[in-house]
């Protein structure tokens, strides 16, 4: 039924001289099955916002509704919320701890109190979904490459069968190929399962072709919230807050400014090339 944020404010260290207003009056609706890219640079409040969705942080004021229920109600089951809204943090090193990959992925479902059989079935299914090769299942998670660790970390949350998956900068520190592989895997996961996915990134270019909607965060507020095409149309304002639209946006706009008749809404190189070829 969706997640609803109603005038959410978060003040860090309230009532101290170091108080900081990290989230300012956020109102949002995330419908089921949407793939949302959350963009902003360090300190924009994007990671803080994500930790509100599963109740890890509690808003200073405002309400959050998950499937119509207020998660701040006294008798609300937070543990259940955390299994339905899965959050994968940026560094897989912060969660991997078991002696082998498979046991590590079992940690989540086991915490839900599932029996051994169901736990292992889910772990197996989750590892298959993230595209990890079978021969790695019984290796130590610490011997894996960066991209593989990332997959195991995602599987560790997927095994809890969440309806919403939040990924906090899943591509940080990966090389370009590793980054593309993870993003494609996530997209595939979304189309196959129809899950709601929120993907945090600081690069518009990386997520543009995968997501349905982009949420641009700046200084604790939502600056833009629209389809990638419509967000990139504001490339000048994005520039002002230190975020860049994909390079193709600049090229097409530059051509248009030179008096050429091109549509500037392309977001991938293929689309841009098609558009430019129309001139010739």
């Amino acid at each position: 039924m969706a997640i609803l944020l109603d005038h959410v404010n978060y003040i860090y260290n309230e009532d101290t001289p170091m108080a900081a207003h990290v989230l300012k009056d956020i109102c949002l609706e995330i419908p089921d099955g949407q793939f949302v890219g959350v963009i902003g640079h360090t300190g924009s409040g994007k990671s803080t916002l994500m930790q509100h969705f599963n109740g890890l942080l509690r808003a200073t004021s405002g309400h959050i509704y998950y499937n119509g229920e207020d998660i701040y109600k006294d008798d609300y089951d937070m543990k259940k919320l955390r299994s339905k809204v899965g959050l994968v943090f940026q560094y897989p090193e912060h969660q991997l701890f078991e002696i082998d990959v498979f046991s590590d992925v079992c940690f989540g479902p086991r915490n839900l109190g599932l029996d051994k059989r169901e736990t292992e079935l889910r772990a197996y299914d989750a590892l298959r979904r993230v595209g990890l090769e079978d021969e790695l299942f019984y290796q130590s998670p610490f011997d894996l490459s960066g991209g593989q660790k990332r997959r195991v970390a995602i599987a560790g949350v997927l095994a809890m069968k969440p309806d919403v998956l939040i990924l906090d900068e899943p591509t940080a520190g990966l090389d370009p190929k590793g980054r593309d592989e993870i993003l494609q895997q996530v997209k595939k996961l979304q189309t196959e399962t129809g899950m709601t996915i929120l993907l945090v990134s600081h690069s518009m270019e990386d997520v543009a072709e995968y997501v349905d909607r982009i949420l641009v965060m700046n200084r604790g507020s939502v600056l833009f919230d629209d389809t990638p095409r419509n967000v990139f149309a504001h490339y000048r304002e994005l520039e002002e807050v230190g975020l860049a639209a994909p390079q193709v946006t600049y090229i097409l706009n530059e051509l248009r400014n030179n008096g050429l008749d091109v549509d500037t809404s392309a977001i991938t190189t293929k689309e841009a090339a098609d558009e430019i070829m129309k001139l010739f």
Partner: peptide, 17 residues
């Protein structure tokens, strides 16, 4: 396993066409 800047990629795409 590397990629090139998007402009370079676009230029390359246009060359191919």
């Amino acid at each position: 396993r590397l990629d090139v800047p998007q402009v370079t990629l676009l230029a390359y795409e246009l060359q191919k066409r």
